[in-house]
């Protein structure tokens, strides 16, 4: 079985990747790194013991990152859970763009593990 880490191009992306590594290690599963962003993801942090592969978005069919991730999960029955990073969103951001995390939480057919950055204060 494998864990899929949904990695965005930001701080939460790094968090999701690290949490995915921990999860894969403790459950002794493979790691699938799903890049929600467009800059190639850097898998050099993944320790040697873990089997991993990267999936990049490619082409018109992957235009929506959440749909692309959900399609991947639907196509691969070996995926046991999703790891995502949450982030604080500005009111402007909320008004303009839907929440990626919310859509994954509501639509994922497998359990979702979410991690968030340490809140300042």
């Amino acid at each position: 079985m494998s864990i899929i880490a949904a990695v965005a191009e930001s701080l939460e992306g790094t968090l999701a990747l690290n949490a995915g590594i921990d999860e894969a290690r403790s459950r002794d599963e493979d790691l699938v790194i799903f890049n929600l962003g467009l800059t190639p993801v850097d898998p050099s942090d993944v320790p040697a013991g873990i089997q991993w592969r990267v999936i990049e978005r490619e082409g018109r069919g992957d235009r929506d990152p959440v749909d692309a991730l959900l399609d991947e999960i639907a196509d691969d029955p070996r995926i046991s859970r999703v790891v995502i990073g949450l982030r604080r969103r500005s009111p402007m951001g909320k008004a303009l763009l839907g929440s990626v995390s919310q859509r994954i939480l509501l639509n994922s057919p497998v359990p979702v593990l979410s991690v968030r950055p340490d809140q300042p204060e």
């Binding site: 467009l38 082409g59 992957d62 951001g93 990626v100």
Partner: peptide
């Protein structure tokens, strides 16, 4: 086909 990957959602990324 690859040039058509991005959409509105990607505007969330600063670059």
């Amino acid at each position: 086909n690859k040039t058509q990957t991005a959409g509105w959602a990607d505007l969330a990324v600063p670059w």
